[in-house]
């Protein structure tokens, strides 16, 4: 046991302290620079609210990507399933159950389609994801246009309690806890990583690779489905896009997943996703507070920050980096 204790006092803990200190001082410094706006209660609420969607999508993608599936249809999936949820809740009068279950089940079902293409039909997951993104985007716009007139947006007018601050905060904390629990403390979490690491060995150890990938996708889709529920509750709409525009919906979550992955040595990935989401959200918020133009400089800086973080985490990387 002494061995385990010694491990607990390893550089990992030190690195965690450093990262926490750097982030904290960044926020405090920016708070002063922004004229005491950054950490004002209203803005903190906003930051947390805005972080929920990227965090849940990132957790979801984490489960799917870890099992070896690179799925780029997640953004299209979120948009379609959120609109399904709104349709059920509001237009078919199913209320909250319709919204929550509808969205989550739709997300899970759609993700299973992608997984079917990738695992059963053995189409490389990149292609399966892109192909399904095309299909889902098209299904969203075609479906909605059949339903709506005078607008192309399906509005969630009622049932928006989940979009309020306390619910969003609770979601963020619970989400991190559940993600951590599943990925680190359950057999399925371990199996997902095992299958992603070596389908052959894990198969020999009695792990059914196909079942694990499917289960991982169910968990992942449930996560981003829940994220979509919160997003649509907060923003009251999920605007459809076309022409693979849904990819830009997941750029920020993708950056978060990659960041948390590259800092996995220091921070638990689930927590890393939480920190990363809040950070990426805050970057835009901070820069706006500093008067940095949105749509141009903010994006340039985000890109620079992602690469810089990658470089910092890459310092101790050994071996092959693709």
């Amino acid at each position: 046991m002494a061995n385990i204790k010694a491990l607990r006092q390893n550089p990992r803990v030190r690195a965690q302290f450093i990262i926490a200190a750097v982030l904290l001082s960044l926020f405090v410094a920016m708070h002063f620079v922004s004229g005491f706006k950054l950490l004002s209660p209203g803005n903190v609420k906003l930051l947390i609210t805005q972080s929920v969607f990227p965090a849940f999508v990132s957790w979801g993608m984490m489960f799917i990507f870890t099992s070896g599936i690179v799925d780029l249809s997640v953004g299209a999936n979120c948009i379609l399933s959120a609109n399904v949820g709104v349709l059920l809740a509001q237009y078919l009068g199913l209320g909250y159950p319709g919204l929550i279950l509808g969205t989550v089940l739709a997300a899970v079902a759609l993700e299973q389609l992608t997984i079917f293409c990738a695992v059963t039909l053995k189409i490389p997951s990149w292609i399966a994801g892109l192909g399904m993104a095309l299909v889902m985007e098209s299904a969203t716009t075609v479906g909605l246009s059949a339903y709506l007139s005078g607008t192309n947006i399906l509005w969630l007018d009622e049932y928006r309690a989940l979009g309020t601050f306390p619910a969003m905060l609770a979601a963020l904390i619970l989400g991190a806890a559940v993600s951590m629990l599943i990925s680190d403390r359950t057999a399925i979490g371990c199996n997902i990583r095992a299958v992603g690491g070596s389908p052959h060995v894990s198969g020999a150890m009695g792990i059914d690779a196909k079942r694990t990938v499917i289960l991982g996708a169910v968990i992942g889709a449930a996560f981003f489905g829940i994220g979509s529920v919160f997003q649509v509750s907060y923003a009251s709409k999920f605007i459809p896009v076309a022409g693979l525009g849904s990819l830009s919906t997941i750029f920020n979550p993708l950056a978060v997943v990659l960041l948390s992955g590259s800092f996995a040595r220091y921070i638990n990935t689930s927590v890393g996703v939480l920190v990363g989401s809040v950070l990426v959200t805050s970057i835009f918020n901070m820069l706006t507070l500093l008067g940095v133009p949105s749509g141009t400089w903010q994006q340039i800086l985000l890109g620079a920050i992602v690469v810089t973080c990658g470089m910092i985490s890459g310092v101790h990387t050994k071996g092959v980096v693709k």
Partner: peptide, 8 residues
């Protein structure tokens, strides 16, 4: 700097 190409 050993940053994965997808990330860059």
């Amino acid at each position: 700097f050993k940053v994965p190409s997808f990330m860059i």
